[in-house]
């Protein structure tokens, strides 16, 4: 489903940072991959490269067989197939919850208002907040906002979902509700790439865990391998610091 081939990315401003160095990995259809690593390790950059919010300098990235770094690729088409959930939710504050979920359906997918509405209501039902359809996002708690953001991404019927630290901005008591939605999604067979610090989630849901440090993939493997006997010292150190 996703193939990343020797991707590098350097940020020049405000000072030069090699965010990604020769990163290669694959994500199969229906697989849940969790990327972990210390801050500044390039995990968010890698995720953002997958739908070209960041443009990789060198290498190739294929989503469902399409080379997204190719000049001729219509990136908007690719992005419509790749859902993304952000750390800070980024809901549209001038639109109601329902409008947040229907907007891209109407504008990008050209669905009829009725169809978009039905789809949106079904998804709000799924993430557990159909009763908030008519309110504006600033009336919702962080957990509710993030669930709306997930519904908004799912409304496009994406083939892949990317999660960029979806629970990092939440109060502790709200993390559970968002993780539950994500677990359900994984169970339904959605292909997911998740950047997170929730080790419990990684252990329980992930098919594979990727550990990154200083712009490189240091180690990857199944959760059991990863949490019980990691091979690299850097991984051991990181796990000892956070567990």
């Amino acid at each position: 489903m996703i193939t990343v081939d020797k991707v590098s990315k350097t940020f020049h401003a405000p000072h030069e940072v090699k965010a990604l160095q020769d990163v290669s990995c694959r994500v199969a259809k229906g697989e849940v991959v969790v990327i972990i690593g210390p801050s500044g390790s390039g995990k968010s950059t890698l995720l953002r490269c997958l739908n070209r919010l960041e443009h990789a300098d060198t290498g190739h990235i294929y989503i469902d067989g399409v080379d997204i770094l190719d000049r001729k690729t219509n990136i908007n088409k690719v992005r419509a197939e790749v859902g993304m959930v952000f750390q800070s939710f980024n809901l549209f504050p001038h639109k109601t919850v329902l409008e947040n979920v229907t907007l891209a359906q109407l504008v990008v997918r050209k669905r009829s208002p009725r169809e978009a509405r039905d789809k949106a209501m079904a998804l709000l039902e799924k993430v557990g907040i159909p009763d908030k359809a008519a309110v504006y996002p600033d009336r919702l708690s962080g957990g509710q906002q993030q669930r709306v953001a997930i519904a908004r991404a799912l409304a496009m019927d994406p083939k892949v979902m990317l999660f960029d630290e979806p629970t990092s901005a939440l109060d502790p008591e709200m993390i559970g509700e968002v993780l539950d939605v994500m677990k359900n999604l994984a169970r339904e067979g959605m292909t997911m790439v998740v950047v997170t610090h929730e080790m419990g989630f990684a252990r329980e849901v992930a098919d594979r865990v990727i550990f990154m440090d200083q712009g490189r993939i240091v180690e990857e493997g199944t959760p059991e391998h990863f949490f019980t006997n990691p091979t690299h010292n850097r991984t051991k150190l990181f796990l000892s610091q956070i567990l």
Binding site: N51, L53, N76, K77, R79, A80, E81, V82, G83, M84, F86, S88, N90, L91, F92, L103, A104, V107, V108, A149, R152, A153, M156
Partner: peptide, 12 residues
């Protein structure tokens, strides 16, 4: 983030 969210949904 608003622009990123909109673009990530496939909007031009």
């Amino acid at each position: 983030g608003q622009m990123e969210a909109a673009r990530s949904l496939g909007m031009s």
